[in-house]
Simulated assay, not measured.
Amino acid sequence: MTQESAGADAALSAVAAVTGGAVGAAISAFHSASNFLDGLMSGPSTQSFHVNKDNVLKAGTIIQDQAKALRRALVSAQHDLRVYVDGNSAGEVSANIAGLWNRRLTTDDDSYTGRIEKYVESLEHLGLQLKESAKQYGFTDEEITTVFGKTK
């Protein structure tokens, strides 16, 4: 967690302490969910598997498919991840809280969206490494293009 995110979390906690009621309950729920997601996202980030000539194309297919599916899901969900405030009924505290939530969820360097984006990029990089391995194993350009697509 960056200092900026820690500051946002501290501000949310301060607002929860002052406001109490529904806003305080919402902030507490957000903190619980945030802590849970932090635990999920900070789990083991690397796994190893053995790639050889017999499985490099299959591994490439799996990695490429997962990266594409996750990127599509992230793009389609980004609008729904933002917290919006109705300007007619929201007070300044609600607008501030929405801003803090949005930073934590979508815009901070270590936001959940940012972390997922970095994970997708790591999958895409792994796909490129598998493509290079397939070339070294002697697969034809057609076989490699079928799995990994055309070179840009």
Rank of each mutant, 00 (worst) to 15 (best):
K58A: 09
G24A: 03
G20R: 05
D54S: 14
D80E: 09
H31R: 11
A59I: 02
N52F: 11
D141E: 14
F36A: 07
N52L: 00
G99Y: 11
M41W: 03
A8P: 13
R71S: 12
K58R: 03
G39P: 06
G87M: 06
V15D: 13
L37Y: 11
I144K: 04
G7I: 04
A22F: 14
K131P: 02
A8T: 14
R104D: 09
L37C: 06
H50C: 00
L74T: 08
H31P: 01
S111Q: 04
L100D: 09
A67D: 05
V120H: 08
L123I: 02
D110Q: 12
V56N: 06
T106Q: 12
L40H: 11
I27S: 05
T46M: 13
G91R: 14
S13H: 11
L126T: 15
M41P: 12
A73H: 06
E142A: 05
F36E: 12
A69S: 14
N35Y: 15
K152T: 11
S122T: 08
M1I: 07
L130Y: 00
S13N: 09
A17Q: 14
A11T: 15
A98T: 04
A59W: 00
G138I: 00
H125Q: 14
S133M: 11
S89P: 11
N88C: 05
N96W: 04
V120Y: 13
L130T: 01
K68F: 08
Y119A: 04
N35G: 07
K152P: 15
S94G: 05
L70T: 15
D38K: 14
G39V: 10
L74Y: 09
D80C: 02
D38A: 11
E117G: 06
G20F: 09
S42Y: 03
Y112F: 15
D110T: 13
V51S: 10
E117W: 00
V83S: 09
S133I: 00
F139Y: 15
K118W: 07
D141S: 09
E124I: 06
S122P: 02
K58M: 03
K53A: 12
L81F: 10
N96T: 13
G43V: 02
A11W: 10
A90S: 15
E143F: 07
D110W: 03
H31L: 08
K150L: 06
A95K: 15
L126Q: 12
D65T: 12
A14C: 03
Y119E: 06
Q129C: 09
Y137E: 01
R82W: 02
Y119T: 15
A134E: 07
T145L: 02
K118M: 08
T151N: 04
A14F: 12
G43L: 07
Q136A: 00
A33K: 11
G20D: 11
G43R: 15
K118H: 05
A77P: 07
I97G: 04
R71F: 10
I62L: 07
A29K: 05
I62W: 06
S111E: 02
S45A: 05
Y119H: 08
F30V: 02
A16I: 06
V83E: 10
A98P: 03
D108F: 03
L123T: 01
K135E: 08
I144G: 00
E143S: 14
K131Y: 01
S42L: 07
Q136W: 01
A67Q: 06
P44A: 11
G99M: 06
T140E: 08
A59Y: 00
L70Y: 09
E142Y: 03
E117P: 08
G39C: 04
Q136V: 05
H125S: 10
G7P: 01
R71W: 02
G87I: 07
D80H: 08
Q64R: 15
